[in-house]
Simulated assay, not measured.
Amino acid sequence: MRTQRDIYGNLNNEVLHQANKGVTINEIHNVYQPPKSLQQQWAAHSYHGSEEHNSRAVINRYLGYWDANPATLIPLSPRDSAPLYVEMMGGAAKIMAKGKELHDQGKYREAMEILNKLVYAEPTNQAAKDLLADVFEQIGYQKESPSVRNSFLAAAYELRSGIPGGASPKSSGPDTIRAMSTDLWLDFLGIRLDSKKAEGMKFVVNIVTPDNCEKFVVEMSNCVLTNIKGVQAKKPDLTITINRSDLEPVMMGTVTLDDQIATGKAKLDGDRKPYDQLKGVLVQFTPDFEMMPGTKAAQPTSPPAMSPFQQQEPGSSAGM
């Protein structure tokens, strides 16, 4: 217990000590080290976190993500900056040769620095991706923290083989969605909103769920969908009345809201247009976006066949 207390105390205090000496969020992971007395105790090792990650997190908590250098305030995206570096370094052949040399010398982080630029500049260059994967693998093997190690090894796999195909894993079931609060569901609809398609839309909708006595006002304004619990607009464009128990199968996708309207379990009062507009601007997410360039399948995954208001099963954050 004392070791746990001291490692987190040292992490917090020493990182802030270094920050007060001018060490930035982009440097602290190369500067912070626990004292030897803690390094020698297994309970202070990086089995469930990492010094590199957590030291940066401390600075981010107190000072934010920016290191105060204007050059890093609005940097180019990697796909835009990488071609400049590759051109100035003399092209892919020279970078590959130097990267292989650094790899063979065991200077993996130096090799990673230049090869990552090449892969972003040339995402179809499989030789470059394979060499960067070799580098990631060696760095991963050296890491004690499972989360850090797996980050490198997973990226190495995807660089060599692409993003794994098949169905996305499901870590929850209908009970999880049923347990979601209505306002949380409405919040997620706001996240799923395609703001480009919602340009110019403006409406106010009241939602009433009589069986649990909840009321919401939902507003579309400036391409943003917001909701307030316990409030009703005096002059809404539309009022939707549906029992929470009848809304849950809509959230789970076993029926559509239109089905509930047709059977009388949901009632629309006012102008139906906002309801139809909202249905048309909601998107379903697919988890096949790439984190490393050139790893996504040539044929993108189609969005799942889901009704507009269906809530996709959230992933588990339990760490199991």
Rank of each mutant, 00 (worst) to 15 (best):
T3P: 06
Q4Y: 13
R5G: 12
D6T: 02
N12C: 09
H17T: 08
Q18L: 14
N20T: 06
V23C: 03
I25N: 02
I25S: 02
I25W: 00
N26C: 12
N26E: 12
I28S: 06
I28F: 00
N30E: 13
V31I: 10
Y32I: 02
K36W: 00
Q39G: 11
A43R: 06
R56V: 11
I59T: 03
N60F: 09
N60I: 03
R61K: 15
Y62A: 15
G64K: 11
G64R: 11
W66E: 13
W66R: 13
D67S: 10
N69R: 13
L76T: 10
S77E: 12
P78G: 14
R79E: 14
S81Q: 05
L84Y: 08
Y85C: 10
Y85N: 14
M89H: 08
G91M: 05
G91P: 09
A93L: 00
K94T: 12
M96G: 06
H103V: 05
D104F: 03
R109S: 13
E113L: 13
Y120E: 13
N125L: 03
Q126G: 11
A128S: 06
A128K: 06
A128E: 03
F136W: 06
F136P: 04
G140D: 00
G140A: 02
Y141M: 12
K143G: 05
E144H: 09
S147Q: 14
L153W: 11
L153R: 11
A156I: 00
L159R: 07
R160P: 12
G162R: 03
A167D: 07
P169C: 00
S171C: 11
S172M: 07
S172C: 15
T176L: 09
R178G: 10
R178A: 15
A179Q: 11
S181Y: 02
W185T: 08
D187T: 08
R192I: 02
K196M: 02
K197H: 09
E199I: 06
G200L: 01
M201H: 05
F203M: 04
V204F: 01
N212W: 02
E214C: 06
E214P: 04
T226C: 04
V231L: 15
Q232T: 15
A233L: 04
K235D: 13
P236L: 01
D237N: 12
D237W: 04
I240T: 06
P249N: 03
P249F: 05
V250L: 07
M251E: 01
M251W: 01
M252F: 12
G253I: 01
T254C: 05
L257S: 10
L257N: 09
Q260F: 01
K265H: 12
K267W: 03
D271M: 08
R272L: 07
R272P: 13
Y275V: 00
D276Q: 04
Q277T: 03
L278M: 00
L282N: 10
F285K: 14
T286G: 13
P287Y: 09
E290D: 14
M292A: 15
T295M: 02
A297S: 12
Q299G: 09
P300Y: 00
T301Q: 15
T301G: 14
S302H: 00
P304T: 10
P304D: 11
F309T: 09
Q311L: 10
Q312H: 08
S316L: 07
G319S: 03
